[in-house]
């Protein structure tokens, strides 16, 4: 079942001779529960593509459907709600709100809804992320790894339809990177979270179900990861 469908997406900057086609007619679809790696050289349009899927950037042309709904048919307000509930974005540079504690950063989307966060769910996420002792600390009082885990927690907390991660381990050491990927895979397996990850790292790409390769704004390869599929089916058995 298709959760996400991208149709002929384009993003163009500038005009005339200064024109830059960051994303140039990209189309693909992702079924629910799949974990996709998006790889490519620098400047290939990966981040731009991801941001458009996360509705934080508007395409120049083309459409994106999430769960059957045309994402960019919505007005700005609806888009904001969409971002809040349907999508979880994880950035390379954490992008936490420096004046809020870890706990507050994680529950921020729920707070924006005006609802009280489910304490049990919060405990579970904090436990899963190993942040229980850091819950009342400000970002400036935490290490890079801890901050990234907070931003993952923020993305997971609302149980969105799709998680989009832009180089989530780019800023971390190898130990932290492994742990982070573990977290993402767990949420993908256990919570059936559809996940798209942009990465440079081959090792990470190999852990995903499917690898899409971008170059100069176009998809040049889109393959299932047979090795991974095998490993998964082995796990299931």
């Amino acid at each position: 079942m298709e959760l996400l469908k991208v149709e002929n997406l384009c993003k163009v900057y500038g005009k005339g001779e200064n024109e830059v086609r960051a994303v140039d007619g990209v189309s693909f679809s992702v079924p629910k529960g799949q974990m996709v790696a998006i790889v490519g050289a620098s400047g290939s349009g990966k981040s731009t593509l991801l941001h458009m899927i996360g509705a934080v950037d508007r395409p120049t042309s083309g459409k994106i459907y999430l769960d059957g709904q045309d994402v960019f048919q919505q007005n700005n307000r609806e888009l904001a709600i969409f971002r809040r509930r349907q999508v979880g974005l994880i950035y390379q540079f954490y992008n936490l709100i420096p004046v809020l504690t870890a706990e507050e950063n994680i529950t921020l989307p729920i707070l924006m809804d005006g609802r009280k966060p489910d304490q049990a769910h919060l405990e579970k996420i904090l436990g899963m992320l190993g942040l229980k002792e850091r819950r009342n600390h400000l970002p400036s009082q935490m290490s890079g790894g801890q901050q990234q885990r907070v931003s993952i927690g923020r993305a997971l907390f609302t149980s969105p339809q799709v998680i989009l991660a832009d180089e989530p381990t780019g800023n971390l050491d190898s130990k932290n990177s492994v742990e982070i990927m573990e977290l993402l895979r767990r949420s993908n397996r256990e919570l059936k979270q559809t996940t798209l990850i942009i990465t440079h790292d081959e090792k990470i790409a190999e852990q995903c179900d499917r690898i899409i390769v971008l170059s100069d704004g176009k998809i040049i390869s889109d393959e299932g990861n047979s090795a991974q599929e095998e490993a998964d089916s082995n796990d299931e058995i």
């Binding site: 700005n76 307000r77 904001a80 969409f82 971002r83 992008n95 709100i97 924006m112 923020r154």
Partner: peptide
């Protein structure tokens, strides 16, 4: 400005 951008990307509406 960056923070406001982040907030919006998380889902803060413009009115908020």
């Amino acid at each position: 400005e960056r923070h406001y951008g982040v907030l919006q990307s998380i889902g803060a509406t413009p009115e908020q």
